[in-house]
Computed example of a mutant assay.
Amino acid sequence: MSPFRKWSEISVFNRSRTTDWLPLSSVVLRAIAKAQSVAARTRGAFDPTLGGLVGRYGFGPITGAPAGAFRDLELRADGARKAHPRQTLDLCGIAKGQALNRCADALRSIGLEAFFIEMGGEVLARGTRPDGSPWRAAVERPLPGRAEPQRVVALRDEALATSGDLINSYVLAGHRYGHITDPQRMAPADSALASVSVFARRAITADALATALFALGPKRGPALAEHAGMDALFLSRDGAGLREVMTGRFRDRIIWG
Score class of each variant (00 low, 15 high):
T88C: 12
L50M: 07
G132I: 07
L193S: 02
R251S: 06
A138F: 02
A104Y: 12
I117M: 10
D105I: 12
A125R: 01
F70K: 07
V27E: 14
S37I: 12
L50N: 05
G174Q: 00
I62A: 00
S26K: 09
T19M: 15
K34D: 01
N14Y: 10
I62C: 02
D131L: 10
S11R: 00
G239M: 14
L24P: 03
Q184H: 13
A33R: 13
D20V: 08
Q150E: 15
F70T: 06
I117V: 12
A137H: 04
P149N: 08
V28R: 04
F115E: 12
W256C: 05
T162W: 06
R146P: 02
S195V: 00
L75K: 15
L242P: 05
A95D: 04
A114P: 05
S197H: 06
C103W: 15
V28G: 02
A33I: 11
D157Q: 13
A159R: 07
V12S: 14
C92I: 00
I254R: 09
R86H: 06
E122T: 03
L22Q: 14
G164D: 00
Y170D: 07
G241F: 09
S8F: 15
E118Q: 15
W256Y: 05
T211E: 05
R56F: 14
D90P: 01
R56W: 06
L242T: 04
E140K: 06
F46I: 04
T19S: 15
R30I: 14
G145M: 09
I167V: 08
P130H: 09
E74I: 12
M246Y: 08
K34V: 06
L160Y: 12
F199H: 09
A80T: 13
S169P: 03
P23S: 15
D252F: 08
V171E: 11
G241S: 15
N101S: 15
I10C: 05
I62N: 04
R243D: 15
P66A: 13
Q87C: 00
I110L: 06
E158G: 03
P142K: 01
L224T: 06
G97T: 02
A69Y: 02
R56T: 03
R249T: 09
A223Y: 04
Q87H: 06
T49N: 04
M1T: 13
L209D: 03
T19G: 14
S16I: 15
Y177E: 02
K6M: 07
A35G: 09
R249F: 09
L29C: 10
G64L: 04
S2I: 01
P218A: 12
L216K: 03
R108Q: 15
P23W: 09
E113N: 13
F59M: 14
R237S: 10
A67R: 04
W7F: 14
A33C: 11
R176G: 06
M230N: 02
F199T: 10
A35P: 07
R249P: 04
L216M: 11
R201E: 06
R108K: 15
L216G: 09
P142V: 08
F234S: 07
S169C: 11
P188Y: 11
A228K: 01
R126T: 04
P144L: 08
D131G: 06
F250N: 03
G52V: 01
F4W: 11
R76Y: 10
K6E: 11
L91V: 13
F59P: 03
F70Y: 10
A159G: 07
F13M: 07
D252E: 14
A223E: 08
V12R: 13
